[in-house]
Design a protein around this nucleic acid. Structure first.
Length: 453
RNA sequence: GCGGGCGUAGCUCAGUCGGUUAGAGCGUCUGAUUGUGGUCCAGAAGGUCGUGGGUUCAAUUCCCAUCGCUCGCCCCA
């Protein structure tokens, strides 16, 4: 039985052409968050399984975690998300870190679930978190970062909306305004999460079933709908509007509007799945009707660091997944033509390798990425290889060229050939690269058209 | 965890109402006289029809199981 060449179920191989897109996405993300002063960290993929028991949410730990025992009998898990890990890192150096602390990580996450469209068992995620700010300035910044990130990919604000709510506010609504107990509150929160997936009548039936007779008599369903139908915070019931968490929402919205974020909406149906959120939560939606769904989101989680037995540290963060991002970019035609990193394919005619090395080295020291064809095949085969790899330039080096000190530079797009010294070739190709391949690593700043405030 | 669809060449797929040498396009390789690719032309290689079992004179085709892929549900970082 031959070995399978397939990657593990739900995990992907990245051939260079796939990796190019991933690099483009990660580099763009990295560049954006670094502009805001976020610093990259990393941590092991394996964590003790208890790390996820506390706050992540039962389903994820019990059914969606890759958990196993190591040879020493320790229960470990492949990290399904980064938030508990980064909280651990912060808790470990709680006293010595300088706040506000801005951290980001880009890496693989593992979830044991059935793969389907847009969802894998191994996916990549960028986590961006700010630690140590209690006020809404942190929410303001984090959402601004998310907004800049999408705009750095060339997205316009018509392509996505940012929907905002507050976990704290919803806790008040469920417990105090509607008088739910803990169990009811959780069930209703789950139901709210599904409101856009089910029929309105069905929602009413299920909501009604969750309330007690006395709550029903007090008009619980109507009150719940009053809250959920509020398209603007001002439309919430008076009692709800008296809450501090309501004022926070208003503040964040005002700050973001002042920052030019015009596609922000209040949406009381945003609750998010994780148990650890404690304040403002938000989700970013694709406005494309084909793909009208939540792409990513985040919020405030002030309690996680404190779980490690240190003083709590207020935190706001979000995470963006590679698959949903790629889908978004694709559906809005925002993926640029990505090129290989190789600038020049060096082709050798005859037995000139010894003498040609100096030429190649010179081009490299001038800053070019040069791949050499080492096969000694016929010239046409070597050119064909370069073409197949998508490399734009070929340099032909034969005895004639070596004697002359000038080499044939051929552009495969146009077929044009010219003869130059190695140094001149380097400068021509670098010039070309700067002009024609701005996306080979990441977009230039010119692509980011941030409007003036 | 539940339900649907599909497994035929490297890729995308056709086909066999069960019956001698299983097809196409793309891709790959070779060639058109030796230092020029992408187009065109000529030719070639490549499949025990996912795997195991059953029915049958005969199975890639029918039946069962199994594995894999895929889409949806649940759930969602």
């Amino acid at each position: 039985m031959a070995l399978s060449t397939q990657p593990y179920k739900g995990a992907r191989d990245f051939y260079p052409e796939d990796k190019r897109l991933q690099k483009y996405m990660f580099n763009t993300i990295r560049r954006t968050v670094e502009k805001f002063g976020y610093e990259e960290y990393d941590a092991p993929v394996l964590e003790p399984v208890e790390l996820y028991l506390a706050k992540t949410g039962e389903e994820i730990v019990n059914e969606q975690t890759y958990a196993f025992e190591d040879r020493g009998g320790r229960k470990v898990a492949l990290r399904p998300e980064m938030t508990p890990t980064v909280s651990r890192l912060v808790a470990a150096k709680r006293q010595e870190l300088a706040y506000p602390l801005r951290l980001f990580n880009i890496g693989g996450r593992w979830r044991y679930e059935r793969p389907q469209r847009g969802r894998y068992r191994e996916f990549y995620q960028a986590d961006v978190d700010i630690f140590g700010i209690e006020g809404v300035a942190a929410e303001h910044e984090i959402i601004q970062v998310a907004d800049h990130m999408l705009r750095a990919f060339g997205a316009t604000r018509e392509m996505y909306t940012i929907r905002l709510n507050s976990r704290k506010l919803m806790d008040y609504v469920l417990h105090d305004f509607l008088g739910c107990n803990e169990v009811q509150a959780q069930s209703i929160a789950k139901l709210i999460d599904r409101i856009h997936k089910i029929e309105h009548a069905e929602f009413l039936v299920q909501a009604d079933a969750l309330f007690s007779p006395s709550q029903r008599d007090a008009g619980a369903v109507g009150k719940l709908l009053h809250v959920l139908n509020a398209k603007k915070p001002e439309l919430l019931p008076d009692e709800v509007r008296s809450q501090v968490s309501f004022k926070e929402i208003l503040n964040v919205m005002q700050l973001l509007q002042a920052s030019g974020v015009t596609n922000l909406r209040f949406d009381p149906t945003i609750v998010r799945g994780f148990d650890y959120y404690t304040g403002i939560v938000f989700e970013v939606f694709d406005t494309d009707t084909e793909n009208n769904r939540s792409m990513f989101g985040g919020g405030r989680y002030d309690g996680l660091v404190g779980l490690f037995g240190v003083e709590p540290v207020p935190t706001v963060g979000f995470a963006m997944g590679d698959v949903t991002l790629a889908n978004f970019l694709e559906s809005h035609e925002l993926i640029p033509e990505l090129q290989p990193e190789v600038d020049v394919y060096a082709i050798f005619v005859g037995n000139v390798w010894d003498q040609a090395q100096k030429v190649v080295e010179l081009m490299r020291s001038e800053g070019l990425n040069v791949a050499c064809d080492l096969t000694d095949r016929k010239l046409d085969k070597q050119i064909k290889t370069a073409d197949k790899k998508g490399i734009h330039y070929v340099v032909i080096i034969g005895q004639k060229e070596i004697d002359d000190g000038r080499f044939v530079l051929k552009h495969l797009g146009t077929g044009a050939e010219e003869r130059h010294s190695a140094a001149r070739i380097a400068s021509i190709v670098k010039d070309y690269r700067a002009k024609h391949l701005p996306h080979s690593i990441s977009p230039t700043d010119d692509d980011l058209d941030i409007e003036e405030v």
